[in-house]
Amino acid sequence: MSDEIFAAAIEAIEKGDAEKAAEIVRLGLDRGIDGMELLNKGFVPGINKVGDLFGEGRLFLPELMMSATAMQKVTDLLNAGFPEGKMKTRGKVLLGTVEGDLHDIGKTIVAALFKANGFEVLDLGRDVSVKRFIEEAENFGADIIGTSALLTTTMTVQKELQEELKRSGLKDKYKTMVGGAPVTRRWADRIGADAYAEDAGEGVRKALELLKK
């Protein structure tokens, strides 16, 4: 019986059906399934499937956002039933495209997938200065600062952010992630970023790894 509910949970998330997902949460809890089990065996595999389908071009951004909304509804409902703190978000992520760079489609996809995976996301948009990244991270209480750059001429701003974090004594306070077409793992290593991600899906995995450390 539980398996049917887990399968229905996966389907509800895949279809981005928030009402159905909420119904499944209630049904599962009524039948005595543990909330965490419901999440880990039903809804999380569902959102992982959505991420994979998106990465393969079989599911699209609007649908991804509908799945993210459904997932948010699920976590809100389950959260209400847990002792305080047990179901807190997976982390706070501040995202933005660096100053001088107007490309924000890739970064938007990253933001959507992070949201879908239970992160609290603050997306600063594009053309974001180093100063603003730091100010907003402080106000937001970010765990991770993620920067995107699509040009070889703007990726240097990612390095400036690292230097500014060091100068202001905040380097250890935040984990930093970098991405964007010309950005590579070696660039991340060179500038001292904590992680590099090839795409949005890898970004989520790397963020989870970073926050475990």
Binding site: G57, R58, L59, F60, L61, P62, E63, I105, I109
Partner: peptide
């Protein structure tokens, strides 16, 4: 890119959905 990114997801050309085309 290797597939058309579905930012809209529903636009078509000659009745064929473009998003996700390889």
């Amino acid at each position: 890119g290797e597939f058309v990114i579905g930012m809209h997801g529903e636009v078509t050309f000659d009745g064929q959905r473009l998003a996700g085309m390889y």
